[in-house]
Simulated assay, not measured.
Amino acid sequence: MKRRSLFLGAVIMLSLSMILAACGGEKKSSGDAKGDSKVKLLTIATGGTGGTYYPLGGMMGKIIKDETGINADVITSGASSENMAILKDNKADIAFTQTDIVSYATKGELMFDGKKIDSLKGLGTLYPETIQIVTTKSDIKSVEDLKGKVVSVGAAGSGTRANAEQILEAYGMSFDDIKVRDLSFDDSTAGIQDGSIDAAFITAGTPTSAVEGLSATDTVSIVPIDADKADALIEKYPFYIKDEVPADTYKIKEAVPTIAVLSMLVVREDLPEDVVYKVTKAIYENTDKIKHSKAQFIKAESALNGMSIDLHPGAKKYFDEKGISQ
């Protein structure tokens, strides 16, 4: 009996040791960061290697590592819309997107219809993604002049398409008033060049390479957004800000008023407050280390402009300390 008890005890001890070893041997991913202020790795979802998000993400990742000691793994993606799903699925901790796209995601609207994402919080906005209505036609001088014209409104399901629809709405128009083409930026400018389309909506940081290419062979015009229409759009859609396409961009002689959405950083809401605080501080207090043309726009003082979702408590703590509010 005693021998049997000893045997059973040994079996129980062995089982317990195996369970403890298994628990201790689990690899903790960045998706397990909830409640853990000792996060060792953050994954940043950016965009394609040829875009702006990817190089910025790499530079910010280095800043995060240097300033906080937390490693940052930068991954490529399909950018704004896809990044929201990546965060939802815990495949990243931080992501680049646009202020309008994350607004649609949290409300389950447009391309996120029926797929509302509740787990997203803002870290800060970065730089303008300017809405440019591009044409080479001399008879298109205003948004109203687009009536009856062949107009590219961006790829199907894109943020650009939503921008186009909202701007037309502000002018009492809709897609029914134009001949809609759903084209990428490159295909849009190629269509303008060969005459198959008359104008195109392009939402991107200026100067945009596709439009620069067009301006090398044709005289480009940017259609203005009137101030009162911009105000109405901002009131209805707070993710917009007033912007302009500067003089000499695409060889235009005078600055053209328009509106913009903003690129921004979004985080999962379950990231620890102290981690997001450190990351926010690291990025906005080391913008001089971001060697990119967009760095001039990345400032703590403007990081809440156009913010379309609630801030993460860690980011809010940083901006509160700086006396910055929306």
Results as ranks from 00 to 15, higher is better:
residue 239 F to C: 04
residue 156 A to I: 13
residue 228 D to Y: 03
residue 194 D to Q: 07
residue 223 V to Y: 05
residue 217 T to L: 07
residue 144 E to Y: 09
residue 222 I to H: 01
residue 178 I to H: 10
residue 194 D to L: 09
residue 189 T to E: 05
residue 212 E to K: 05
residue 249 T to Y: 15
residue 239 F to D: 06
residue 218 D to Y: 00
residue 153 V to K: 04
residue 204 A to V: 00
residue 159 G to P: 10
residue 230 A to G: 10
residue 149 K to M: 08
residue 240 Y to T: 09
residue 201 F to T: 04
residue 189 T to C: 09
residue 137 K to C: 01
residue 160 T to V: 13
residue 156 A to K: 12
residue 198 D to V: 02
residue 175 F to K: 07
residue 183 L to H: 11
residue 166 Q to G: 03
residue 152 S to G: 13
residue 238 P to G: 12
residue 191 G to L: 11
residue 196 S to K: 12
residue 184 S to M: 02
residue 147 K to F: 07
residue 199 A to M: 02
residue 208 T to P: 00
residue 213 G to F: 03
residue 193 Q to C: 07
residue 195 G to P: 10
residue 135 T to G: 03
residue 258 T to R: 03
residue 229 K to Q: 11
residue 189 T to R: 04
residue 201 F to I: 00
residue 183 L to W: 12
residue 256 V to Y: 01
residue 185 F to I: 00
residue 151 V to T: 08
residue 147 K to M: 08
residue 193 Q to W: 00
residue 186 D to F: 12
residue 253 K to N: 11
residue 144 E to L: 12
residue 154 G to N: 08
residue 249 T to M: 08
residue 134 V to S: 02
residue 133 I to H: 04
residue 230 A to Q: 07
residue 257 P to V: 07
residue 137 K to I: 01
residue 182 D to F: 13
residue 176 D to N: 14
residue 214 L to W: 04
residue 188 S to E: 09
residue 193 Q to P: 00
residue 147 K to T: 14
residue 139 D to N: 14
residue 200 A to D: 02
residue 257 P to H: 13
residue 177 D to Q: 09
residue 169 E to N: 15
residue 251 K to I: 11
residue 233 L to S: 11
residue 251 K to P: 12
residue 232 A to P: 01
residue 171 Y to L: 08
residue 250 Y to Q: 09
residue 159 G to L: 07
residue 232 A to D: 13
residue 211 V to T: 01
residue 148 G to T: 08
residue 141 K to Y: 04
residue 147 K to S: 14
